[in-house]
Structures are given as structure tokens and as C-alpha cells.
Design a protein around this nucleic acid. Structure first.
Lengths: 239, 239
DNA sequence: GTCAAATTTGACAAAAACGTCAAGAAAAAG
DNA sequence: CTTTTTCTTGACGTTTTTGTCAAATTTGAC
């Protein structure tokens, strides 16, 4: 119950924050309807928005983040103008999507890694969260990976850096919370980089090189190796 | 001497292979000039070609592989048409550049890892080669990384996959040569993926997260940790 | 029903990108 | 010097992409 209502609030905030709904005449009293669920209009709005998001994910997976708005709108079976009504620009859309993926991933990490004690346990939780999250969600992984790749460019999409740093920071915090002695900032950052990089890198590379279709299984079977070697790395890199 | 003449041959091959020089009237006897060095024409040709390549590397580092031919030509201070004279299409150019980077990297690995015995020694050689290669060559790293990212897409540039597989194969061979017992193909592939992914991932992520400018130094100082943890990973992943 | 707000649409104009090509410039051959 | 070949140029027409906007449609309020 609490969980559900939280979700509702979040989605409302999201909707309001990146769009210009009802900016015209807010002067009229708006007691707002709570009954049943949503108004028909809201449902319609949410539906085309969702269609656009789905289409975007699919198109980005095929052609990368430089895919055209045209293609997204067409695949969503929606007029070009609607895209701009919902998302002011393609850049905004990308930020939104990446933020969503990363925040969901972060939540999962926090849930999985909470109250774990000891470096290995924490690392295991983090890796577990990544595997669980990306499992069967190839599109989200591509989004994550393309977003990350974009950050290596000098002119990357504005606003992409922030969510990634936040995500990295979460990893750092988990590690910090899981270990007894305090760790120096720079070292902590290296370890977090190594973890995030290791997993993403392995995952992406395995797909290219692997003849086996089920990367996820491979990944899971390697979890133990990941954990011990990352822990080893962390210990080695620390002092 | 041998080294130099090899280079000459290679560059000639490269030039001839991806362009249509002298396809018109080859009927006339062509004893070819070896004297001195190159003809004035050859030098001019090589110069604009080089200007284009340099410009491309710079532009790609800023905007990614989807940058326009326009921009490359403009930055090279060369007419748009010249680009198409030298490289039939942007895709060809990218393939060429990525192939170059990967083959140079592979050469370095082979040199560094030759006749090393034992898993750790081989891994150390491989990592050493990567660090040495990418050190102070940020543009090449971006090219490498962007190329790799492109492979996660369903419609990636044709011909990019091949050189990357070859590169991965080289890593596999080095590992295989360095270890005593034969390794199963699938496992070997996982290890190679892990290595390539680990390094690229860490490197890319470190840059985003690091406040420190000199990533290379950080990387070098972590070399030992990389090696031992990768070796640990490999041993863990093997049996 | 009427009116107003929210949402969707497709046309539009402007800008960017593409690839080709005829013509010009530079160098090599004769 | 003339001819030929190679290389370079920039203009050209086409296609893609972009972002805006007025009109149409749908919905909510009254």
C-alpha cells in the first residue's frame, strides 16, 4: 500500500516535471479527482507517452542514441508533433530514460546490498543486483551502455553525467557501509569504477564474442569468480 | 631498416586497398619509381589523406561516430568531395581507423606477451600493452570504446565486428599459449571478454568519476591489482 | 448542450547531411 | 610545350532531420 502510493507520487512528479501540462489556467480551483483511478484524458496521455518510450527504447537499441525523432514517432505510431509535446527534445527523453534505468538499478543495489557486512558480501549484492536487473532486459543494458559511451565524448548529452555520477556514488556508499575501516575517497572511487566497468565491459564484450545465446546464464555462473576477484582487487587497491 | 620498409609496404597496401587509385589506364607499363622516396603527387595525396584522418579522429572524439562528413572535411580544411575521393563512405573510414587501432594494439600485445609463461605473466603483458598503448592517446581510446559500443547495437557499422573479434581472438591465443593445460573454448572466450571488458570499462568509468586528471598514472598503479584479480578470475572461471 | 483546456495531428519551413559530378589545378609523361 | 593522369574543388539536387504551429480532435467542466 505504502509502496503503491509511493509509486503513484513518483510517476506524477515525473510526468509533471518534464512536461508542460496545465500551465495555462491553473487559476481555477483544482481539487483533483482521486476516485477510481485516472481520468480518461490522463490515461490517453499516459498511453501515447508510454508508446513513445517503448518505441524509443526499441529504436535506440537498433540504431543508438543518434536515431531520429522521426523513427521513434513512426514506430510509436504517433504523430511527430506529439513527441515534442511530450518531450521537449530528444536529449530530454534520453536523460529521462537513463535516469530511470539508473535509479531503478540503484534501488535494486541498495535493496540487495543493505545491511550486508564485509566486502565480499557487499560486492556480491552489487553484482547480484546488476545481473538481476539486466537479465532479460537487453534494451536497458544497451541504453545504459550507450549512455556511458556517450560520456567518453567531449560533447556528450547534457545531464547524462549527473545520473551516472549518482549511480557511481551509490556503489561507493555501499562499499563504504560494508567495510569496517574508512576508505580514502580516491581509492573508493577507483574500486567503484572498477566494479561498474568490469561488469558492463564483460557483459558487452561477452555478447560480441559469445556464440552462446544465453549470456545471462554465463554471467550468473561467473558471479562467484567476479566477486572474489573484485574483492581481491579492492583489497589490493586499497592500502 | 626492415622495420621501415615494412611500414612503407603496409602504407602502400593500405592506400591501394581502400581507394581506386590508378584504375583507369593501367595498360601502360608501370616500372614504378623507388628512387629517393615518393613523388610529389604521392606526398600531396598522403598529406590530405592524413589531414582527413587526423580531423576525423578529433571530430569523433568530440561528437562520436555519428559526426558528419561535413565537419570532418571542414576541420581538415579540405573540400567535401575530397573526403569521398579518399574514403568511399564514412563507414569505410571508421572501419579503417578501428582496424588500425586494433591491429596496432594487437601487435603491442603480442610483442609484450610473447614467450611469457604462466597466466599472471601473460595477463601482465596484456594489461601492460593496453596501458602503454592508450597512454596519452585519449582519442584512440574513444575510438576503441565507441566502436565497441556500436557493436551492442543491432544495426552496427558493417565490418566493425570482424576486427574486434580478431582482437579478442588474439587475447585468447596469448592466454592459451601462456598456460600449460588446454582450455575449453567457451571458458577461454569468457576470460578474454572479462579482460577486455574490465580494462575498457574501468578506464572509461574512471575518467567520468575521477577528479584526478592523470588517469594513466592511476591505471598504472593499479596494474598489479588488475593482474592478480584477473588471474584469480581466470582460475576461478576455468575448471 | 456549450465552452475551455488538453492532447494530437500533419503541414510547413529551415537547416543539415548526403553523394555525385563536371570542371579546374597540379603533377607526370611524352 | 602538349597530353594525360591524378587529385581537388565546390556547386548541385536530393534526402533527412529538425522544431514550430495552427487547426482538428478529444475530454472535462458546467
Amino acid at each position: 500500500m505504502t509502496f503503491l502510493s509511493n509509486l503513484t507520487i513518483i510517476s506524477k512528479l515525473t510526468v509533471v516535471s518534464d512536461c508542460c501540462r496545465r500551465v495555462h489556467k491553473m487559476n481555477v480551483a483544482k481539487p483533483k479527482e482521486e476516485p477510481g483511478r485516472q481520468s480518461r484524458q490522463q490515461r490517453g496521455y499516459a498511453r501515447t507517452r508510454s508508446k513513445l518510450l517503448t518505441a524509443a527504447r526499441s529504436v535506440f537499441t537498433e540504431k543508438g542514441l543518434s536515431a531520429s525523432v522521426d523513427e521513434i514517432a513512426e514506430r510509436a505510431d504517433v504523430a511527430r508533433g506529439s513527441f515534442y509535446y511530450h518531450f521537449k527534445t530528444k536529449e530530454r527523453l534520453i536523460n529521462l530514460m537513463v535516469e530511470d534505468v539508473l535509479s531503478e538499478l540503484t534501488n535494486r543495489m541498495n535493496k540487495e546490498g543493505a545491511d550486508k557486512k564485509g566486502l565480499e558480501a557487499v560486492l556480491d549484492g552489487i553484482i547480484q543486483a546488476h545481473i538481476g536487473f539486466f537479465s532479460n532486459r537487453w534494451q536497458d543494458f544497451v541504453l545504459y551502455y550507450q549512455g556511458r559511451a556517450d560520456l567518453t565524448l567531449e560533447e556528450s548529452y547534457d545531464g547524462l553525467k549527473k545520473p551516472f555520477l549518482k549511480y557511481a556514488r551509490s556503489i561507493e556508499e555501499l562499499i563504504e557501509a560494508g567495510t569496517s575501516e574508512p576508505i580514502q575517497d580516491a581509492r573508493l572511487r577507483r574500486i567503484a569504477s572498477a566494479i561498474a566497468g568490469f561488469m558492463a565491459g564483460y557483459y558487452s564484450f561477452a555478447i560480441i564474442a559469445s556464440t552462446d545465446q544465453d549470456i545471462d546464464k554465463e554471467f550468473i555462473s561467473l558471479r562467484g569468480a567476479f566477486v572474489t576477484s573484485l574483492a581481491r582487487f579492492a583489497k589490493e587497491a586499497l592500502p
